[in-house]
Design a protein around this nucleic acid. Structure first.
Lengths: 236, 236
DNA sequence: GCTTGTGAAACGTTTCACAGCA
DNA sequence: TGCTGTGAAACGTTTCACAAGC
């Protein structure tokens, strides 16, 4: 098992504060949310922002914000706060979205098509370069009014992934096919999986997988609504 | 602020193990995943399952599974494990999805339409009863081939929520309108929000909100792919 | 043999509190 | 005064380890 090890000769950085692997996952998740908020603040014309203001806008403490950012270096100014624009660039560079990532969608059902046609990804650094299906009725049909990209046969997945350097695969097939599609994506050279199927995927050790089970989110809501009302679960 | 308090006269249950509020959020999230796996095991004809087997299928330890379930009572059998069908029913009853919850979708863009037409929610106990938009070009158009439900004007939101007892609102509008739509949903009587807009929502204390920012998930993947490669973040 | 349920230990994350700086 | 960055304390979650039961 090859363990990732950071290069010891960082070219221009004297202070690499800590290896990416040592950063807690919750902190990385919040980093994305900070970025989202900062982009909003920038639109409003804000030039600087304090950890307290940024935290409050998301329901976190100021200390939380500072700790999270400190994992990656120190780019705040005591007495002033953080420069909004510079912090945005720094977070993008930390997340790796200062360049464009290519992704493919497998499964041209309603959800797959909706994701494929969603405009918001490009601004965030993601380009959905192709959508695949196995249904002959869908293959060849064109999606999206101006771009008119064609639904491709799954047979062509490997070619597209290699030719376009695709690193992310988005799975929007029914649960019973999610595993085989995942295997195919990883064989084709994809490095990480975003899974919308209500299924748990088995992947080689260390391969990043994120599952977005929509029903799970609704169940969490239902539970919390009931909990708030004080509805206690009695023994059945 | 009214704090939820459990009724002291649980009708047929002598042992209500612990108030719902005291259960850690991560445990509740896993409960949904256990349910998902158990439904799969049931389809395969499994009658009983051990905490180890259930945990392994999701990448958790056996102790984790037992601890999570123990928050809600004891329904396993030493030496045997858990009865799959009974455990499914128990988890549904804990999550509250042993009955149907009504939800509405606000925002009839690609994502909103895709969610609205997604068949999988009904089996999980959720019925999407209406979809709303403010765009006159969309209002009145019919979605879905057999059911042909109409996109309604947002003006009618309050009526529908009251008439159909809707408890969950799903927000799929652009970020700049997410807050006003949320306010409107809560005024109409909705109890919890599932938010797909890339924005942080402000709601009264205690109102359950779950945000599913798709770009955030992609950013997490990008970070983890880079971290795995050992690409360290140098000082900019 | 196998399994559950659970107190206690280990671990990780968040919050506190304050030195240092503008 | 206001703010950052950070060690230390507080808190919450996960894992361990084992008694009890099938």
């Amino acid at each position: 098992m090859a363990t990732a090890e950071p290069p010891s000769d960082s070219p221009e950085a004297a202070r690499a504060p800590c290896p990416l692997n040592a950063v807690p996952a919750p902190a990385v998740r919040r980093l994305s949310l900070y970025l989202q908020q900062l982009e909003g603040f920038l639109k409003q014309g804000r030039q600087t922002i304090s950890s307290r203001q940024l935290g409050e806008s998301l329901g976190y403490t100021d200390a939380q914000v500072r700790k999270d950012l400190a994992y990656f270096g120190q780019f705040g100014h005591p007495g002033i706060g953080y420069q909004v624009e510079a912090l945005i660039e720094r977070i993008r560079s930390i997340l790796g979205t200062d360049r464009t990532w290519s992704a493919v969608v497998v499964g041209a059902g309603h959800l797959g098509q909706a994701l494929f046609r969603y405009r918001g990804f490009v601004a965030k650094g993601f380009e959905l370069v192709a959508i695949f299906d196995t249904d002959p009725a869908k293959i060849g049909s064109r999606l999206g009014d101006p771009p008119a990209l064609e639904v491709l046969s799954l047979d062509r997945l490997g070619d597209v992934v290699r030719e376009r350097g695709v690193e992310i695969g988005i799975v929007t097939v029914p649960a019973e096919h999610a595993q085989e599609v995942t295997d195919l994506l990883l064989e084709s050279g994809v490095r990480g999986i975003l899974n919308f199927a209500p299924a748990s995927l088995v992947v080689p050790d260390g391969v990043p997988v994120t599952s977005v089970a929509l029903a799970v989110h609704l169940e969490q809501l239902a539970f919390r609504i009931r909990a708030r009302r004080g509805e206690v679960e009695p023994g059945g």
